[in-house]
Design a protein around this nucleic acid. Structure first.
Lengths: 198, 198
DNA sequence: CAGAAGTACTTGCCACTGACAAGTTGCCAG
DNA sequence: CTGGCAACTTGTCAGTGGCAAGTACTTCTG
């Protein structure tokens, strides 16, 4: 008596991402997901070890998507990598939140660690290219600054804090990404350091 | 049969902050807190409306502490406001996590909104002073960049992502704050804009 | 074409959780 | 000495995640 249109694993992940995006990680109930998918409350156990396993799989999927996006943007410029990071968080809020909520994840999961490594590799590539250019006395701090800025921006935007502080309007269209680009540009653009062409 | 040394409200908040810091918001169990405090499983209800109420009170307390710290640092320099932000997150990880996990909070709580306003006011002060100096074409983006950078740094450090990416050592002493200062300095220091003296 | 093995579930149960209703105790004002 | 309030406790409920034991349907094997 299979009710899920596609395969159950995908359905549950999709559904979980939705709930996280709308209500937060704490509101993900496996039984509720099962009800929506039209399966029994234990159906997930064949695909995921536990609730933690499901969320870990979601985080891993998120890291794969993020790494894809960052790698594509890296071909353009380091600034655009930052913008791509923010765009990912905006377009996949459910994935993004889970990826950076370590206490709901299984830290030993090989899929997760592999996917996360890919994301980190793009950042590490940023360090290397900056260090290779030699004009930075502290490449590590520069990459930390870049990552922190875009991650903080994405997080504050996702949690509504930017809007609450009156720093952002009702987020119409790409206004958010423009602001992100201007903010990130203050690190690289206006201070005359632009690792790639743009 | 009161077992809590001090008053129960304070004991529960303290205990909750501990759990959040060590295991995350999701692992806060009111019944477990009650057990540790030596009271019954419903004792909290006199002090807090619900679990959400307790966490909201914790977030409000956090915002008061943060605002205090930021206001003190603002007397020194804008860079030090950023460092104070990171220091707060390091010293009060439980409070910090709850403050920026909106889905476990009551958004209408007056204590919370009041305390949060104080925090935002310091940031707004940053906008104003930057705008008054007139050398910034986009004061809003500058403040967003500053807040994003320190918030992202604090978050990535707290969730262990900085360490996992190999960008941070085992966080000995003030090494973390030094890195934060160097990273934040790339926004203001090295690009020649230093709003206050330092 | 029997039957063994495996896949993808379901049913049933358990301990635990947060919310809530209805007590209970101790103290203090009048 | 009594009414009332503050600060609890006890009891109960629906909901949750984890686990054990089934079950039906498919696919491979002899």
């Amino acid at each position: 008596m299979r009710r899920a249109d596609a395969d159950l694993r995908t359905t549950l992940l999709r559904s979980a991402a939705d709930v996280v995006a709308r209500a937060g990680v704490g509101d993900v109930s496996i039984r509720e997901l099962a009800r929506q998918a039209g399966v029994s409350h234990a159906a997930h156990r064949y695909h995921f070890a536990s609730r933690t396993g499901l969320l870990t799989a979601l985080a891993a999927e998120g890291h794969r998507l993020l790494a894809d996006a960052l790698e594509r943007a890296a071909a353009e410029s380091f600034l655009e990598v930052g913008v791509a990071y923010v765009r990912f968080a905006r377009d996949h809020p459910g994935h993004f939140a889970v990826m950076f909520t370590p206490d709901v994840l299984d830290p030993a999961d090989p899929e997760l660690t592999a996917a996360r490594s890919r994301t980190f590799a793009v950042l590490q590539g940023g360090v290397d290219s900056l260090a290779a250019q030699g004009e930075l006395d502290d490449a590590r701090a520069a990459v930390v600054a870049a990552w922190s800025l875009v991650h903080g921006f994405a997080t504050l935007a996702a949690t509504g804090n930017l809007a609450q502080a009156g720093l952002t309007g009702p987020a119409t269209g790409d206004e958010l990404l423009d602001l992100a680009r201007r903010a990130a540009g203050m690190l690289y653009g206006s201070s005359g350091r632009d690792p790639d062409h743009a």
